[in-house]
Design a protein around this nucleic acid. Structure first.
Length: 922
RNA sequence: GGGUGUUUAGCUCAGUUGGGAGAGCGACGGCCUUACAAGCCGUAGGUCGCAGGUUCGAGCCCUGCAACACCCA
């Protein structure tokens, strides 16, 4: 083995081998375990969120596979309508063409080409992460079978009246020229203005203060062209007499009825609100209540349309805004302008300001579906981990709105609806079916709906459509419902809710039994990682490393906002002055697990990854040590594990218990910590050191040496299996060297059983003994460190006090004690005898002393003792306070009181000893 | 405006029925000890956001406040 661990030498090769051997496919006859991968965007690339998520899923998958479950990790990718189409359109625009020029069929052809060319990216990257997905069952949301399922669902919902087409106010993205759903909106606080306009009153009406006009305020002056009313609060004394009267819309001349509606906040502005039912969701409702007409004034690109006065037609909305304000000002109808902070809705893809716009769209009537979905979580059929997300789910589901599922795009599942010349709608899985159902002859000309379905409509079917639905396949029977969905809290509404609703509807069962929600990966400052901010990290750069110049280039090229480049470059050079070293996949995976605590967002800290890279190296070197010492010797024959051997096996049993518990409860952090702690601080720091003296001692009995070697190998092998789900590559590599020593002939650690605590004996006696030994060794190291005794120098040790147990332990572990603490002699001093000047440490009642004899600085020793005295006094004070409290003694459980009393006695006794020691140093 | 979460060592975070405040990184001191300097040994550092309350006892339970983050309107 190499002197240090080199991930690159092993990772790719091992993965190819596993995949070729078919280890990722379900096997064995155990009960099924299944996770459906949240399908990544087919043309996307791996970001930190994916890497995080896939690490957790792979850990679960490998764990359950090793536990003997028949395990399927269903792979697949999503066509990601809007973002993929935007990407290809941008390429097209770069060539000076638009998609309309190219035409629908050619454009879709082009997207497919792009998919074929770049679709392999994400798969390659997933392989680098070590993800053991079943590639043989790879699916795509636009593949033929999946498309069939989507059509089927659409038609069935339509036939049941759960899908309808309607003219509604929708969120319209004028840049993409498509409707988007509520969820695709990002509301941002931005600086704007509040304009006050005078709307003249008709028929000589006046306000209470005698004015012949009303003042309305707006943040979007251009929409006034579509005003069809003015509203006031019904209880507002200032305007009560005007309700039912009429105002005139300036520039347009339209008569605006004045209506009373609770919606109006009398405290805000003048208490008069202009009502634009076709361009504002609230106004739309007010308008509906009072029968106000809808007046659409925008085109699909948010320019002013022919319904507006000629002067404004064709103007972009912002241009129109300026003109309108200027024109009103010229007419003396501008009553004032003030700066105003407002919430602006923007499309999450295009970042364009979204307009409420009146169009024909397809909707899913959601309430009937939501009911069962809420019940499934209420009654525990589906469990959220952590549980707090159930509340987020409920809150959303109980106020859920109908789902706008049509998108004015070309890339996606085209809506299976056809229109005849009279505008009648015919829905069917195919045009033929639509004709058949509509009883239409071949002569009737049908035109298919131009729109496609929201991407989430198809991914809502993910768990069952990937398994073959609507066919009743074996896989569907065996693997559905899946066991757990692993996803981020950002897509609970987009995806989790819709999967639950659709799956309950069409499968009659839940899609998954648990939903594990993990946090989002943020940068070291807690900011969201994004291309725009240039603070993102590519997981592969952490695995393979990247030099600074490449990193800077990568972060600054192809920016949507090129002006950010200098800033990004500066930050990058500051944060990664030496680029990023190569850490390897295992170290990255370990980092993600260790950071995955209770579902909160994680700040990604490179120094953690570095630490876990070091951990991998530690494991590697421990294995080197074990192999060096065990390879040349037979491991069978009489073997005596000894106290240390019994101890480490007992500790290993605890490790195994902890691992199972942590993984069953999705505490990946506790799992990672348990592995780290055991491997480094128990196995390496102590057991290896305890084994060394025996291995190196020519006079040691063979059975003891064999026992130590066997223990070294068996515990290492067990540790490798326990760590495999999180560190697949390094564990496999080492395991292949180690397993043969135990006559294990399996081809891969992947196929070995996860350790069970029943395999190991609990040994409290050995644990107590080694704890004692560690206490004495640590005490002596402390004296050495504090007193500045050279590490190489051997010391004499005097023991005094203590009880029979101390004597037994000193006798039984004296051999180890001497070697671990570089002790040349151990002698007992009779109780009561005055020791020579010494440095003292206490292990319980036992005095552990190192005679000064010129090796120790008396002043330093006095300082050290004083420090301990101070500490003990503080402790005694605290305990004394408790025991002095009558209520405590009376009310606390006797066991607690007893414990405190014993503690007080121990501390008191230690204090006495320390004080004597201080006197003796005087 | 409503909701959820967070606030523990310099930094990032654990702390599982309320009963002796922990880890990693960083800092400081000492070591090239024959697996590992990506290492070993030792040390320092915290009024557990603030104010109340419940309790014999609160990092943990309750109330209020503050700051930050996210979600919804």
């Amino acid at each position: 083995m190499e002197r240090s661990f080199d991930p690159h030498a092993i990772e790719r090769e091992l993965y190819e081998e596993w995949e070729a051997a078919g280890y990722f496919a379900p096997s064995g006859e155990g009960s099924e375990y299944c996770i459906a991968i949240p399908p990544p965007n087919v043309t996307g690339s791996l970001h930190m969120g994916h890497a995080f998520q896939h690490t957790l899923m792979d850990a679960l998958i490998r764990y359950h596979r090793m536990n003997g479950r028949r395990t399927l990790w269903q792979m697949g990718t999503d066509h990601a309508g809007i973002s993929t189409q935007m990407l290809v359109e941008r390429q097209l625009n770069g060539e000076g063409k638009t998609r309309r020029e190219v035409g629908r069929d050619a454009f879709i052809e082009r997207v497919w080409e792009w998919k074929e060319r770049s679709g392999g990216n994400i798969s390659r990257q997933l392989r680098r992460m070590g993800s053991s997905v079943d590639w043989s069952r790879d699916r795509f949301t636009l593949d033929d079978g999946f498309a069939g399922a989507v059509m089927d669902v659409f038609v069935r919902l339509y036939e049941e009246g759960l899908i309808y087409r309607g003219k509604r106010l929708v969120n319209w993205d004028p840049q993409l020229a498509t409707a988007i759903s509520d969820l695709e909106i990002e509301n941002r606080e931005e600086d704007g203005h509040l304009w006050h306009f005078r709307y003249p009153l008709k028929d000589g009406a006046t306000t209470v203060d005698g004015k012949d006009y009303l003042v309305v305020a707006t943040t979007r002056p251009e929409t006034m062209l579509g005003d069809t009313g003015v509203a006031v609060h019904p209880g507002d004394e200032r305007y009560r007499h005007l309700v039912g009267k009429v105002a005139t819309l300036p520039l347009v001349g339209r008569a605006l009825p004045i209506v009373a509606d609770e919606y109006v906040d009398p405290e805000f502005g003048t208490g008069c609100v202009k009502i634009t039912p076709a361009h504002d969701f609230n106004d739309n409702q007010v308008g509906a209540r009072h029968g106000l007409p809808l007046e659409n004034i925008f085109t699909a690109r948010a320019a002013i349309n022919e319904n507006a006065p000629e002067a404004y037609r064709g103007l972009d909305r912002l241009e129109a805004r300026k003109r309108i304000v200027a024109d009103l000002d010229a007419l003396g109808l501008l009553d004032g302008v003030e700066p105003h902070r407002l919430t602006v809705p923007r499309g999450d893809r295009s970042e364009a300001v979204v307009e409420p716009w009146l169009t024909d769209q397809w909707f899913v009537k959601i309430a009937p579906l939501a009911e069962a979905a809420v019940a499934a979580v209420e009654n525990g059929d589906i469990e959220f981990v952590p549980n707090q997300y159930a509340n987020v789910y409920f809150a959303w589901m109980r106020e859920i709105q109908d789902w706008c599922i049509s998108r004015q795009l070309w890339w996606g599942h085209r809506i299976p609806a056809w229109y005849d010349a009279d505008g009648n709608i015919h829905v069917g899985r195919t045009e033929a079916e639509a004709r058949l159902k509509g009883n239409l002859s071949g002569e009737v000309v049908l035109t298919r709906d131009e729109d496609v379905l929201d991407t989430w409509f198809s991914s809502a079917l993910w768990t069952f459509a990937t398994l073959g639905w609507p066919a009743e396949t074996n896989e569907l029977k065996r693997f559905h419902p899946t066991d757990v969905l692993v996803t981020g809290h950002d897509i609970i509404f987009f995806w989790v809710t819709r999967m639950i609703m659709m799956t309950l509807k069409f499968m009659g069962e839940v899609p998954f039994r648990k939903v594990y929600i993990h946090g989002l990966v943020r940068d070291a400052e807690g900011r969201k990682m994004s291309k725009t901010k240039g603070n993102g990290l590519d997981p592969l750069d952490l695995i393979d490393g990247i030099v600074l110049e490449d990193l800077v280039r990568k972060r600054t090229e192809n920016l949507t906002q090129p002006r950010m480049a200098p800033r990004i470059e500066k930050d990058t050079r500051k944060d990664f002055p030496k680029g990023i070293p190569s850490f390897g996949t295992d170290a990255l995976r370990f980092t993600f697990c260790a950071l995955a605590s209770t579902g909160r967002d994680v700040r990604f800290d490179l120094s953690r990854t570095e630490g876990y890279r070091n951990f991998c190296n530690k494991l590697w070197n421990a294995a080197r040590f074990v192999l060096m010492n065990a390879r040349e010797h037979p491991l069978d024959g009489p073997a005596e594990p000894g106290l240390a051997g019994r101890w480490i096996q007992s500790r290993a049993r605890r490790l195994v218990e902890d691992c199972h518990l942590a993984l069953e409860t999705y505490r990946f952090d506790l799992y990672a910590n348990a592995i780290y702690e055991f491997a480094w601080h128990e196995y390496c720091d102590w057991y290896l050191e305890l084994a060394k003296p025996l291995l190196w001692d020519e006079n040691a009995p063979l059975a003891h040496q064999t026992g130590a070697r066997r223990t070294l190998v068996t515990v290492l092998e067990l540790l490798l299996r326990a760590a495999h789900p999180i560190l697949p590559f390094i564990t496999e590599t080492i395991w292949r060297d180690v397993a043969p020593l135990l006559a294990k002939a399996g081809p891969s650690i992947m196929l070995e059983p996860f350790p069970q605590s029943g395999d190991l004996a609990a040994d409290p006696e050995a644990e107590a003994s080694i704890d004692w030994l560690k206490g004495v060794v640590t005490a002596l190291r402390n004296i050495r460190g504090e007193a500045g005794i050279k590490p190489g120098r051997e010391i004499d040790v005097l023991l005094q006090g203590g009880d029979a147990r101390d004597r037994d332990l000193a006798a039984s572990s004296g051999y180890l004690l001497q070697r671990l603490a570089k002790v040349s002699s151990i002698d007992w001093l009779p109780r009561g005898e005055r020791p020579p000047a010494n440095a003292l440490a206490l292990v319980g009642e036992l005095k552990v002393m190192v005679p000064l004899a010129g090796v120790i600085d008396i002043d330093a020793e006095r300082a050290r003792i004083n420090k301990q005295i101070e500490r003990k006094q503080k402790e005694l004070q605290r305990i004394g306070g408790k025991l002095g409290n009558e209520k405590f003694v009376r009310n606390a459980p006797p066991a607690i009181v007893e414990k405190e009393r014993n503690k007080a006695a121990d501390v008191q006794s230690a204090l006495t000893t320390l004080k004597q020691q201080l006197d003796s140093l005087a």
